[in-house]
Amino acid sequence: AVTGSQTALLLRAFEKDRFPGIAAREELARETGLPESRIQIWFQNRR
């Protein structure tokens, strides 16, 4: 499950760019500790 702090970080990124590229998703994966594929799905679901 995604924690509150991970969600906050993802929401901030989403406000800046609703369609992040692979580099941005990989950076978010490093920052959150989540797999990049999970980040991609999160953005798809959020849109």
Rank of each mutant, 00 (worst) to 15 (best):
Q40T: 09
A8D: 09
E31M: 14
R12Q: 10
N45S: 08
G4T: 14
T32C: 05
F43T: 01
L28Y: 03
F19N: 10
R38M: 15
Q6D: 03
Q40V: 12
L9D: 03
Q40P: 01
E27W: 10
A24E: 10
R30V: 07
N45V: 09
G21F: 03
S37K: 10
E31K: 12
R47N: 11
L9Y: 08
R38L: 15
A13Y: 14
T7K: 14
E31V: 14
S37E: 12
G33H: 04
N45W: 14
R30D: 04
R25T: 09
A23Y: 08
S37M: 09
I22Y: 11
T7D: 10
R30K: 12
L34R: 00
E15L: 12
L11V: 12
G33N: 05
A23W: 08
V2T: 07
E31F: 07
K16R: 11
F14A: 02
N45C: 14
E26C: 14
Q40D: 14
T32H: 00
R47A: 05
S5V: 13
G33T: 03
E27P: 01
T3L: 07
A24Q: 11
K16E: 07
T3S: 12
G21S: 14
N45Y: 08
Q6V: 12
P35Q: 07
L9A: 11
E27K: 14
L9E: 03
R38I: 15
R30L: 08
L11G: 03
N45R: 09
V2S: 04
E36L: 12
A1F: 13
A23R: 11
K16Q: 10
W42R: 00
E26Q: 13
R38Q: 14
R30M: 08
E31A: 14
K16W: 06
L9M: 12
F19K: 04
I41M: 13
L34F: 03
F14I: 02
R38K: 11
G4Q: 14
L28T: 01
I22M: 12
R25S: 03
S37I: 12
T7V: 13
I41D: 13
A1R: 12
S37D: 11
R12E: 09
I41K: 10
A23F: 09
T32Q: 01
P20A: 03
L11E: 15
Q40M: 13
F43V: 02
A8P: 01
A29E: 03
T3C: 07
G21T: 12
G21K: 05
L11M: 13
F19S: 06
P20V: 03
G21Q: 07
P35K: 06
T7Q: 14
A13H: 09
L34I: 08
L11K: 07
P20I: 04
L28W: 01
W42Y: 01
E31N: 08
R38G: 06
A23P: 05
K16L: 11
T3V: 06
A8G: 06
A29Q: 04
E31W: 08
R18A: 12
A13R: 02
E15R: 10
F19V: 04
R46P: 00
